[in-house]
């Protein structure tokens, strides 16, 4: 199989990310998170970023590195309770420093990303009906039952983690590292994969590959 070499150093891989970009970052409380790409993006210093994440990590780890460096303008997350820096940034005295934090039910964020990656115009759910999560959303009745219309989420970039990937970017996951990673890989224009281990094409049993490498633009070891 003849393929383009996708393997890059982390700095090279994130060099395409400019100010104002939207980035999906996989991981659940830092498990299955491409920390090496986050570190490289902190070094690059891109600003006014929109991050789409499961949670806000812990102080000093994961997406907090980007938050603390003042690189994030908008955070779309399911849960931010593990990181007190988020509340501080949301209530920052200087308006220009303030973080916009949009909270979305975790299942809804996952399904919106899936819709974004897989060509769906949205989906209907009862989750969030009668709550602040329904604010500004259309409701649709199906067979007499009321649902919220949730719209697809897409992004410019995605940081994907896999436990093992081959040189085409086919990824496999161990344990609970999978979380949003396979969904996000499909929903961004440019997905970068960080793999703990990189192997030759054909070395991962096709039965065990979860993320097809066609979604992956570049691969970083780490």
């Amino acid at each position: 199989m003849s393929i383009k070499n996708k393997i890059q150093k982390a700095d090279e891989a994130v060099s395409v990310i400019g100010d104002g970009a939207s980035i999906m970052i996989g991981g659940f409380l830092c498990c299955g998170m491409a920390e090496i790409l986050i570190d490289a993006l902190v070094k690059k210093g891109s600003k006014n970023l929109t991050l789409i994440v499961n949670d806000a990590s812990f102080p000093g780890r994961g997406v907090d590195k980007l938050l603390s460096a003042g690189q994030v303008k908008r955070l779309i997350a399911g849960h931010v309770g593990t990181n007190p820096n988020v509340v501080k940034r949301v209530n920052a005295p200087q308006k220009s420093d303030r973080l916009e934090c949009i909270l979305v039910p975790l299942g809804t964020i996952a399904e919106r990303i899936r819709a974004g990656g897989f060509g769906l115009g949205g989906f209907l759910t009862t989750v969030g009906i009668g709550t602040l999560a329904a604010k500004g959303k259309k409701t649709v009745s199906v067979d007499g039952k009321k649902y919220l219309l949730e719209l697809p989420l897409k992004a410019d970039f995605a940081f994907i983690y896999a436990s093992v990937a081959d040189k085409f970017g086919n990824g496999a996951y161990r344990g609970s590292t999978r979380n949003l990673n396979p969904l996000m890989a499909s929903a961004a224009k440019h997905s970068i994969l960080a793999a703990k281990e990189i192997v030759e094409i054909g070395q991962i049993d096709p039965n065990n590959i979860v993320t097809p490498g066609i979604f992956i633009k570049s691969i970083v070891e780490g």
């Binding site: 931010v80 309770g81 039910p105």
Partner: peptide
């Protein structure tokens, strides 16, 4: 306090 709903709404 705004921890977020996490999976609680689901």
């Amino acid at each position: 306090l705004m921890p977020g709903m996490g999976g609680a709404m689901d």
